[in-house]
Design a protein around this nucleic acid. Structure first.
Lengths: 144, 144
DNA sequence: AGATCGGATTAGACAGAGTCCAAAATTCAA
DNA sequence: TTGAATTTTGGACTCTGTCTAATCCGATCT
């Protein structure tokens, strides 16, 4: 059951709704809440973290809806999947080209802007294949 | 030091046992079978594929042992984890530096030798951090 | 307003990967 | 061969994610 959160500016909700519409997504209450959580700050939450964040006050959004919505956002190019951890997928609301640091000890993910990063010497793609994306993951750990 | 990529050499149980000893691993029957499966050819099996391959004739190795052994091999630097698919981890018996093509439609993984591949313009690591590895994943899909 | 209709949401059962544990089996040095 | 230490095991368990059938909106039409 949806409960309106009057503490937040209707402005923010309305602008998120417009962004969703601009991407061909019907803006429902749950989708707006999930988008707010995704875009409120620079982080890389898992589906479970999003579910928790959306439901801090009351349980108003189900697990299935979070997964449905994340898949929808993914299809519409609103978020990116980050596959760096064997246990779960993280979602990246920064859709501009970039790469990642992944701190293997803490799980923390940090963006690396793609400007200035260049990869040379990659072999040609296998025949009939097209590049869907190039990810660089720099795995780090605490030094000496 | 034993050469990690033994795909071109005929592997006997005894030679595999020696390699395991050389890496500080007690060579048990199960570990030898798993190593044979891992190194018999150039592939990137999941834990489940390894379990199946080891038990083609009859069940002789348990799931728990496959996971224990893969973790042990990982610790000892005998294999690498490949995290490219949200659903499962693949294991890479080629421990020389290289990157990967990942065909998102078929799940097929192809090695990219690291020689000749150069990455320029990566920012400095976060303070106190050390690089544990740099992975490039070129995600591909069937073209037009 | 009320009725309708299709998309969105839901609970909860389900599936698959991987972990954990205590008991049983195996290894290896003596 | 013996026995302590290491390894293996089945099975229960956790966790992430999927599926489905029922229900719930919410926009549009009378």
């Amino acid at each position: 059951m949806y409960h309106a959160n009057m503490a937040l500016e209707p402005n923010t909700r309305e602008s998120v709704a417009q962004m969703l519409r601009a991407h061909g997504i019907t803006p429902t209450h749950q989708r707006i809440e999930i988008a707010l959580v995704l875009f409120e700050r620079c982080w890389h939450p898992s589906a479970d973290q999003i579910l928790t964040a959306v439901n801090v006050r009351y349980a108003e959004t189900s697990k299935a809806t979070v997964y449905n919505t994340l898949k929808l956002f993914l299809d519409k190019g609103l978020v990116r999947e980050l596959i760096v951890d064997p246990n779960k997928v993280f979602y990246d609301s920064n859709t501009s080209a970039h790469h990642h640091f992944y701190d293997m000890s803490s799980g923390e993910i940090t963006d690396i802007p793609a400007e200035g990063v260049r990869i040379d010497g990659l072999p040609p793609l296998p025949a009939g294949m097209v590049t869907a994306g190039v990810d660089i993951i720099v795995r780090t750990r605490p030094g000496i």
